[in-house]
Amino acid sequence: MDENMKDKIGGLYFGVFGIVVFLVGILEIGLGVLNKTVHFGPLIFSGYFMLWRGAILFFAGIFYLLSVKKFSDVHQKAKAMVASIMIWIIAGTQIFSIILDSIIGDGSRWFNTWEGFLSSYAPPYIPSIILLPFTLVVAYYVLSNKDTDEKNEMIE
């Protein structure tokens, strides 16, 4: 694909995605302030630190939106990358916690049953986990940038 075209699509993609992330962030902040739990399809808005997560998504959304203009510039890509990393942190630690929870059994049982183990992975999920796959697009842009990167490591 033409480099120019590719970056245009990238900018457009992260523009739309940025708005979604930003809105989810605001929603989480709002529900966090009101201390409400909401189920919506495979999504769940709840928990102690929803406010915190919301604030992070809020900023990640802003970073995505800031990255859109002249997406070909490496500084702009870096913003999208950082925003994605922020979502990876939320989703990653959440998945880590789901995995650990799935291992422990309840009551006097040390380990979980097979059914219990599997059901731990069923939805609902926090929004960041749903957002996670959509952030991976940034990897494509970063990897396709890589050959130019390696030639230019910081001078030590």
Binding site: V74, H75, K77, A78, K79, M81, V82, V142, N145, T148, D149, N152, E153, M154
Partner: peptide, 11 residues
């Protein structure tokens, strides 16, 4: 050329 790493470091 600025690398992605440098740009992230700056951010």
């Amino acid at each position: 050329k600025t690398t992605l790493k440098d740009a992230i470091a700056e951010l």
